[in-house]
Design a protein around this nucleic acid. Structure first.
Length: 233
DNA sequence: GTCCAGGGTTCGT
DNA sequence: ACGAACCATGGA
């Protein structure tokens, strides 16, 4: 599937969003997210990576796999203390153990993937948000990367980058930023799903190298002129 | 030693 | 409605 958008549906800012996407794609290439072996691991990873570096999440996932806890049945029935110990490298292990079990119990009670994939986007999103420990970003990551729904995932890197590009206010609410993308990147349902998938992954990849937290502007980034956004920022 | 990471909830104002 | 405190490990 070609992920390059045909044309923006959102005027000047839409064209700019497409331009940023093109530059990031040219510089970093296709990211092939989500990095996981199966659908359930995507969901677990989405919870474990909350405010946590992915390298830590990988260690936690390896421990879970080694202990045969990477299934919703095993994860929901194991003692919380044992689950917490298994995910220790990902940090916040007590709260995340509770969140994982909240999620697994909801997931199983709903009938698992086969049942949930039949749910419409809005209903599925609301249900995810109803699980304690699943906020807007985690819900959208699961919607996009596990359920293939056309939902743009807004994370810290997204807000930082596009506020520095002057396209959004630095204090914009989550849903406002998300609507900014939804309103300006059109196309078919499948096309938008593929585009949102790649775009978010590229934003994260870029954020790891450039435009770090303490740097006020992108031009101060380590990539300097190599930065794909050097001419824009 | 300091800073930060692919957030979310809870509890004060 | 909004901000602050809290959760916690590991890599740069």
């Amino acid at each position: 599937m070609v992920v390059v958008p045909e044309a923006s549906a959102g005027g000047v800012d839409g064209d700019r969003l497409v331009s940023v996407f093109q530059r990031l794609l040219d510089r970093y290439g296709r990211q092939h997210w989500w990095p996981a072996d199966d659908i359930f691991e995507v969901m677990v990873g989405a919870i474990l990576t909350q405010n946590t570096a992915w390298t830590n999440v990988e260690q936690a996932l390896a421990r879970l796999r080694h202990r045969c806890l990477l299934t919703p049945q095993a994860m929901s029935s194991v003692p919380a203390a044992e689950l917490a110990n298994s995910i220790r490298p990902s940090g916040y292990y007590n709260v995340k153990a509770r969140r994982l079990q909240n999620y697994c119990r909801w997931y199983l009670a709903a009938g698992g993937y086969a049942a949930l994939e039949q749910w419409p986007d809005g209903r599925l999103r609301e249900a995810l948000l109803g699980v304690n420990g699943i906020g807007a970003e985690t819900a959208d990551a699961i919607l996009l990367y596990a359920f293939q729904r056309p939902v743009f995932v807004v994370d810290r890197y997204t807000c930082r980058l596009f506020s520095r590009l002057g396209m959004i206010a630095d204090d914009s609410r989550y849903e406002m930023v998300q609507a900014f993308f939804h309103d300006r990147l059109g196309g078919s349902r499948g096309r938008r799903t593929a585009l949102y998938n790649e775009y978010h992954a590229l934003i994260v990849m870029h954020g790891k190298h450039c435009c770090r937290a303490r740097q006020p502007r992108c031009r101060a980034c380590p990539l300097a002129e190599q930065c794909p956004l050097a001419g824009i920022v």
